[in-house]
Design a protein around this nucleic acid. Structure first.
Lengths: 339, 339
DNA sequence: AATTGTAAGCGCTTACAATT
DNA sequence: AATTGTAAGCGCTTACAATT
C-alpha cells in the first residue's frame, strides 16, 4: 500500500546509488550512462513508480511539451473528432494537449494564455477564427500557432482546413446534376471567411452551368439551425420558390429541413436540401442529410503536424493546407418536383 | 513592442524597489504589506504585465489550484453543458480546470493521472463511471474526487447526478396519463447503474398503475441510436406491439423514432416515444422529442462545489447528490392509436 | 574518451530574523 | 506590533569539473 508523496528523482537516486544527475541522464540521454548503471536506475524507477514531475522539468527547461488548444465551444460537433486528430498526432511526437474552453469569454481566453507565458504550453491551436483576445495586453508575442476550421483573418497564423470553395462547388454540382436549376443559397455571410468561400464555390458551379445569379435566392444566416428555419420563412414570403436548398452548413440544413417539414412538405420529393460539414446529426434527421464531409480528424492531424514542425523551426512561414472534402450522398437530394 | 521573456517576480521587485518576498506578499497577503509599498508593487506589476508563473508557484507550494476533469468522450452531448457548470463554479472559487480526454484509452488516462501525482492538479472529476485505470499502478491514492452522470461502482467517490428513478417514473407517468397501457422499455442494461435505475423508475410507475410487468416489452440496449433502431426491429418480429416506447435515453429514442419512421409509421399518431436526457438534438428530430431533462449545468456546478469543499476538508465522507429532472413536453407523445 | 558527480538555477513562497 | 528582507527549498536539467 504505497501511500505518501510521489517518488522524486532523489528517491530513485538513493535506491540506485547514483546521483540525481545520473538518474536524469539515464532517462533522457540513456546512451550517456553505462549500461549497468542504467539498469540499476531503471530498477529503482520500477520500484518507486517514479515519473518525472512535469512542472519541475518545464520550469527548469524553460519550455514544456504541451500544446494549448483554444476552443470557444467544446460542444461544437466539429470539435471532438478534430480534437482526436490533434491529440493522436501530438502524442505520436511526445506532446500532450491542454484544452482551453473559452466559452467565447475574453477573460477566460486570457487566463489560458497564461499557460503560454508561464511556459506550461509551447504551441497554440486556434478554433476561434481570430487571434486570442488580449494577447497583446499580456505584452507577449504569440507562440507558434495554427488555426483550424476558420482562418485567422489578417494574421500570419498558419491554417489547416477544408477546401470550402471546392466542397461547395461539389455540393452545387450534385444539385445541378440532379436536374435543379433554381437553387437557393442559405447562410450567406459578411463576416465568416469560410462561409464566404462556400458561397464562392456555389457561384462558380452555377456560372459554369450558365445559370444566371439570382440574388433573391441568396439568404443570409449565421449558420445556426434557427437561421435555417428563418430563411425558409423569408423565402415563402416571396413570389418565387427554388427547387433546392444549398446550405452553408449542416446546422442550417437541419433548420431548413425543419422549416419545410413544418410547412407540411414531403421531403425530398418536394424540395432537395444539401448541407456542408457532415456532423453526426446528419444521419438521423429525416430525410438523412446529403452533405459534404469535412475530413475532421485529418484536419486535426495535419494541423498538429504542422504546428510541431514550426515548433522545431521558428522561421517557418505561414502555410495554408486545404483538404479536399467528399460528397456524402444520403436521402435529402432528388430530382426537382414538377409543379 | 514588449517582446522577450515574460516578466518575473524579480523584475517587479526591481522596479518597485522591494524584495521579491514583498512582491509575493503584496499579491497574496496584501494586508501584510504597507499601503504605500503595495501601491508601488501594483504599479510595477502594471508596468511589467507580470503574472505569476503557475508552475513555479505550484512546485513551491506542493499543490496547484487546478482540477482535472477526466472525460472518455468530449463529443458526448451531455459533456459540454456540464463542463460549463464545472468551469464556472471552479472559477468562482479561484480554481481552474484541466480537461483530460481519455478516449477510453487506459494509457491516456494514466498520462493524465500524472497531472495529479506531479501536483499539476489537486482534484478529480470523473465522467467515466469507473475509477481511472491504473491509478493503483501509479501506487497513489486518489485525490479528492467526484463522479458525475454515472456513479462509480463500489467506490467511496462522491456522486452528483440526476435522480434517475424519479425521472424515469415521471416519464412513464406521462405516458400513462396520456392513456397508454402497453409500454415498451428500450435500453435495459445489465451493466450501467444509471440505466438500471431508470428501468426501476419505469417499473415503479407501472406497478403503481397496476399494470403487470411484461417482459416481452423490455428490450436490452446500450443506449445508442443504433440500439434503438435494432430494438424496433426486434419488436416487430413478435406478435404483439406496444403503443408507446419509453427509451432509456435520447439517443435510443432517436433510434426508435428512426426505425418507426422507416417502417412508414406516422408519428406520434401511431406510436408515442419518450426519451431521457434532453440532448440538443432532441429539438430537431421529427417529431420533436418529449423527454426528461437532465439539469446538466447544475450537476456540474454542484459537483464542483462538493469537490472544492472536500479539498478543504479531507475527512469529508462520501456524498450522493441527486438532482430532480424535469419533464419536457414536445411532440412525440400523444394518446394511443386505435388499432 | 567514457562515465559520473557537483553545483547552480528555473520562479516562486514562507519561516525566521532584523529593523523600525 | 507592523513591516520588510534573507535564505532555503520545491524537483528538476545541464554546464563543468573530476575521475577512471
Amino acid at each position: 500500500m504505497p501511500n505518501s508523496a510521489p517518488a522524486t528523482i532523489e528517491d530513485v537516486a538513493r535506491i540506485a546509488e547514483v546521483s540525481i544527475a545520473t538518474v536524469s541522464r539515464a532517462i533522457h540521454t540513456p546512451d550517456k550512462v553505462a549500461k549497468s548503471t542504467r539498469q540499476r536506475v531503471n530498477q529503482a524507477i520500477a520500484i518507486t513508480g517514479y515519473t518525472t514531475n512535469a512542472m519541475a522539468r518545464s520550469l527548469r527547461m524553460g519550455r514544456s511539451n504541451m500544446i494549448l488548444i483554444l476552443a470557444p465551444d467544446i460542444g461544437d460537433p466539429n470539435f471532438s473528432s478534430t480534437l482526436i486528430g490533434l491529440e493522436n498526432e501530438a502524442r505520436a511526437h511526445g506532446y500532450g494537449v491542454l484544452i482551453g474552453h473559452t466559452q467565447n469569454d475574453p477573460e477566460r481566453g486570457l487566463e489560458y494564455l497564461k499557460f503560454l507565458s508561464s511556459g506550461q504550453a509551447t504551441g497554440l491551436v486556434l478554433f476561434t477564427g481570430h487571434e486570442p483576445f488580449g494577447h497583446q495586453v499580456l505584452g507577449q508575442r504569440l507562440p507558434p500557432s495554427v488555426a483550424v476550421f476558420e482562418p485567422v483573418f489578417g494574421s500570419k497564423i498558419s491554417y489547416v482546413g477544408v477546401d470550402d470553395v471546392a466542397g461547395a462547388r461539389k455540393a452545387a454540382e450534385h444539385l445541378l446534376s440532379a436536374g435543379h436549376r433554381s437553387i437557393a443559397f442559405i447562410g450567406d455571410s459578411k463576416t465568416r471567411l469560410g462561409h464566404q468561400r462556400r458561397r464562392q464555390g456555389f457561384d462558380i458551379a452555377l456560372d459554369a452551368a450558365r445559370i444566371p445569379p439570382n440574388q433573391r435566392f441568396v439568404l443570409e444566416g449565421e449558420g445556426t439551425i434557427e437561421s435555417g428555419r428563418l430563411a425558409v420563412e423569408q423565402l415563402f414570403m416571396r413570389d418565387q420558390l427554388p427547387s433546392a436548398f444549398m446550405c452553408v452548413n449542416d446546422a442550417t440544413a437541419v433548420g431548413v429541413l425543419n422549416g419545410l417539414t413544418a410547412r407540411g412538405y414531403d421531403l425530398p420529393h418536394d424540395f432537395s436540401v444539401i448541407g456542408f460539414d457532415d456532423v453526426p446529426q446528419a444521419t438521423y434527421v429525416n430525410p438523412a442529410l446529403t452533405t459534404i464531409r469535412q475530413p475532421r480528424t485529418a484536419i486535426g492531424r495535419q494541423a498538429m503536424s504542422l504546428l510541431i514542425k514550426s515548433l522545431g523551426d521558428r522561421t517557418m512561414e505561414r502555410q495554408e493546407i486545404l483538404l479536399m472534402p467528399d460528397l456524402i450522398v444520403r436521402g435529402s437530394v432528388t430530382g426537382p418536383a414538377r409543379r
